[in-house]
Design a protein around this nucleic acid. Structure first.
Lengths: 192, 192
DNA sequence: ATAAGTTTAATACAAACGTCCGAATTAAAT
DNA sequence: ATTTAATTCGGACGTTTGTATTAAACTTAT
């Protein structure tokens, strides 16, 4: 079994290195040689495990999608009321901005990458769809008291996710992130 | 004067060609040779007018920022009430999604490009800041009747812009844009 | 007419890229 | 122990990239 363990950890190490490289230098500037070096692996191994560059990045997106979908679902489950759930989601984005902004950078980079690859576009599109559905299910579905919003649960979940994403982009690009980071809290007021 | 006219039209043609190429193939896949070909100009002209690739793209961003800032300000001026202004801004994004999605694609591509270049980051950051300020000035400043929002005008303008951007990204990536495109209308309800 | 500025053309160049292949090594199976 | 399969390695391939250079033609203004 140690053989198979080594094998999977080898291909997994490549995936992890790919994530690290894209997050650090951006998709366009992350070469397969960079990734191989970061993974401590020879270049040709990347072609051995993942046919080509796009194949590698497809696996990257698949893995990250799964991971974040789980994370976000747990975040949403953590709150009792819809108010708490919104607050938890807000804090999640705030924490990423403060401590893990590389992951947001990665998300934005992969999103713009998806603009030019059909297979990646489908993956990203499904990911956003799934997250929006999660928000709809956990935050908006059982809410009967917010009269004006309950008529458009699907639309509102898209907009809520969009507000998180779009505001985070502004924060990541701004020189002073703190201001916009605190702006995120107003999301709870807007959607209340 | 025709000399200078030719000169400016030559350098301007390069800028236009750059925009067209980035919008069509993405920044990463738009080579200087592509742009020169699209502009009907010899490659060396690109180095003649703009020192290098980044210099060219900086001018692209400067030009587009100016252009869209004016457009958005006119959009915001076109409405009388704050409700009308919000509706006009929503329609603006909807029209882009329907008829000019290449421009949104371009905006997202340049944004992710800005993640990796300090000078571009500053330009994009200022652009988003200016747009948010426009929204604050036209939509949120004179509104006294929306009690819960008026305390955070700056934050809300950032979120409103973020919602437009973030929702548009989802729409551009989705296979069926129409659904999310109509979701945008709920922005008027959320921020009402 | 001269000078300055612009445009074309034809390359050259080194660097970086993704991809591919053959051989060496290791593990698994018989 | 021998064969078979899977993995690892190192290097090469051809292409594309941004940038630079050179000389020649054309335009315009003084």
């Amino acid at each position: 079994m140690s053989a198979k363990t080594n094998t999977t950890s080898q291909s997994q190490r490549i995936l992890d290195a790919a994530i690290k490289c894209i997050a650090k230098k951006g998709y366009a500037n992350a070469s397969l040689r960079d990734i191989a070096g970061e993974a401590g692996v020879v270049l040709s191994q990347l072609n051995y495990y993942y046919k080509n560059k796009e194949g590698l990045f497809i696996e990257v997106v698949k893995m990250l999608s799964q991971q974040y979908l789980n994370e976000i679902e747990n975040i949403l489950k953590s709150g009792e009321t819809e108010k708490e759930k919104t607050a938890a989601l807000t804090r999640y984005f705030q924490r990423m901005l403060k401590e893990d902004s590389e992951l947001l950078t990665l998300l934005f980079d992969l999103s713009s990458m998806a603009l030019w690859s059909d297979s990646l576009r489908e993956l990203l599109s499904n990911f956003f769809h799934d997250v929006a559905k999660l928000i709809e299910k956990h935050i908006l579905e059982d809410v009967w008291h917010k009269g004006k919003l309950k008529k458009y649960p699907t639309a509102v979940s898209r907009i809520m996710l969009g507000a998180m994403l779009g505001t985070s982009i502004q924060a990541v690009l701004a020189e002073n992130r703190e201001d916009i980071l605190h702006s995120l809290e107003a999301i709870q007021v807007v959607f209340a």
